[in-house]
Design a protein around this nucleic acid. Sequence first.
DNA 1: CTAATTGCAAACGTTTTGCAGCGTT
DNA 2: AACGCTGCAAAACGTTTGCAATTAG
Lengths: 127, 127
Amino acid sequence: MQRRAILSAVRTLGGHPTAADVFSALRDEYPNLSLATVYRALHALVEQGVIGETRVDNVSRYDTSPIPHHHVVCRHCGNVADLPQLILGDDLFRTAEAHSGFLLDGRSVQLTGLCPACSLSAVASRS
Amino acid sequence: MQRRAILSAVRTLGGHPTAADVFSALRDEYPNLSLATVYRALHALVEQGVIGETRVDNVSRYDTSPIPHHHVVCRHCGNVADLPQLILGDDLFRTAEAHSGFLLDGRSVQLTGLCPACSLSAVASRS
DNA sequence: CTAATTGCAAACGTTTTGCAGCGTT
DNA sequence: AACGCTGCAAAACGTTTGCAATTAG
């Protein structure tokens, strides 16, 4: 049962690994591991609330922690960083809910911009 | 040049149509319109700043207006609604920037939850 | 005549699925 | 025996691309 190995790979990798990241990390130890297995395991772990899932761009990324928090996504290199959820106050959610009629769940808030590395290289590449 | 037709389809459709939505809307009038053309046209229109693009779930959605504003996405039915951008104040962005070291661009902010219809049916389906 | 636009089909990358085999209990 | 977990290959999905033909300027 390499499902355990998949979970611990997510944890050792840290950050926000994709299914492919997890797959490559385990390929050495489990040479005939299938990508399908990785997807099935990750999906199961999300359903059990053991890990979190965020969809960024076109890709599912998995999160060591299932507790609600927000994300900043670099629009240049695609890196994802965490943001404590307290940054966006409850009042904000209430305002947004009042505006939209939606019932917001506090989880997935996604801001985009440039990460430190990419904003530096953006400055550097200005002629 | 059906690129014009594609733009006006986005406008008449309103909301946040996908490329497929636009395609189906035009299929009657342009029976041999290609999906590739729709994608190319939409992409060009986004580049020109005529329309806006938001990626939700796995799908690009196009927006009548290219001016920055935020979105609420229903995690059940996938519907997208607009949110005035002023809901997230500048101070909030600055706090998030300070926290993450990212340089945020104020555009794509995405909250998720349940839309009015889906939150009603969620309540109704509780045993 | 040149450049842009189009249709078709094929390719793409990510994710899912059918099915048979394997392991555990 | 029954069940869940796995590998493989194939399919699905939205999207992009190569190419040749058409159209616009």
